[in-house]
Design a binder for these strands. Structure first.
Lengths: 219, 219
DNA sequence: TAGATTGTTAATCGATTAACAATC
DNA sequence: TAGATTGTTAATCGATTAACAATC
């Protein structure tokens, strides 16, 4: 067991990717996978995959590769997904509702168990089996349900206030969908999930001219 | 004008961030901003900001800083957002509908102008003013509306097929929300927007024990 | 003029990839 | 045994940060 060396964020962010690919292989009844095969699947360098995994232990067998189920269980453990993790979502708008319904995370032991909103129109509404609660109930609910992660899907202008409230309620991590940089105490980790960044940067790579027929102009 | 040197992805991905912060400053009637002030706002090193911008030209004034409106117009130009860019969305589920409604991009000259789905239940449905169209109409609509970017919000299992169809229709960029690695021709650029990665990696940084009272156990 | 801040070069830091002995 | 593949060290590559002359 190493764990001493501080693991870089880049490595940690690849772990869920590995998990994803491995889950797929597992569903396909694949027993064993090499770093090369996994790399092909994920468009990643095999040496990088081996190195990433080696930070956490010796999970493979020389000449053979990695046992799929075993590696899944190891990565789940590393990501602390071997216990269920409860999540609260703040902001019951379109995006928030979509995330609540979209429950792909539950397979990975993460579950949105409470939804909050400030707006009277939203409070009391039902999403799945959850009742949208007012922000005043945040702290008590976080404590009662042992919620550890918060998702922010409110407009940018409200995001900082919500982050403060989540931090105050004792949340340990925030996934922020609002296009805003949040200031939080060091005990709280923030991950950014604002896809407008990805969408706008995509535009950079478009061909120069809006008109496709750049190099074959006729008239 | 440089542009010769290939700009790294990391740089390009920061441009929308700059744009975001600058737009905010602009709304606050701020005329001028220094790399230091911008860095504080975005939690970025000022030298990095200056270097990033310098790849594209000399936009600042020594001793003064950057003119906010001027820099906005420059970055918008670099990102090719000075012309409108039409976007198609495929997958009219919860997430897809949310993205259609959430029209924050239109401010940045990007607009979802068509929605597609394969499922009979969805086809013909209305989201905003858009009618959900069957996939058979994809190619014709992409050409008619000069759509250049596609957003994928279908389940992972269907994502590759949709990517193939988008590529075939002549799309230049894809924003993929499905947890799947897409294989596309080199003419198409794919950006990944699967937030489950961000959510799961957040778990890694939680305190070891699910029980908060780690260091103050009583019973 | 003095203070501030850019654009840019050089120094540092970190991450990715190649290579290979160990071994299944 | 021969072939495959790991774990790990060394080499490479690239990105970030520091420093500073130029100049508003």
């Amino acid at each position: 067991m190493k764990q001493q060396t501080k693991i870089s964020e880049a490595v940690v962010r690849r772990l869920p990717l590995y998990l994803q690919a491995l889950n797929e292989l597992s569903r396909g009844e694949v027993q064993t996978v090499s770093s090369q095969a996994l790399g092909r699947k994920l468009d990643l360098n095999p040496a990088q995959i081996r190195k990433d995994l080696a930070y956490f232990g010796e999970f493979g067998r020389k000449g053979i590769g990695y046992d799929v189920s075993y590696l899944i269980s190891k990565i789940r453990h590393i990501l602390k997904l071997d216990r269920g993790i409860n999540v609260a979502l703040v902001g019951a708008g379109n995006l928030g509702q979509a995330l609540c319904n979209y429950n792909r995370y539950s397979r990975d032991n993460m579950k949105i168990v409470a939804v909050f909103d400030d707006h009277p129109d939203k409070i009391g509404m039902h999403i799945n089996t959850m009742r949208v609660q007012p922000m005043e109930e945040l702290k008590a609910t976080v404590e009662a349900l042992q919620i550890r992660i918060g998702i922010i899907t409110v407009p940018a202008a409200a995001a900082q206030k919500v982050a403060d409230q989540l931090a105050d309620a004792g949340i340990e991590g925030i996934l922020n969908f609002a296009p805003a940089i949040l200031k939080v105490p060091p005990s709280v980790r923030v991950h950014h999930a604002d896809f407008t960044t990805e969408l706008l940067s995509l535009a950079y790579y478009l061909e120069k001219d809006a008109d496709h027929d750049d190099d074959k102009v006729v008239d």
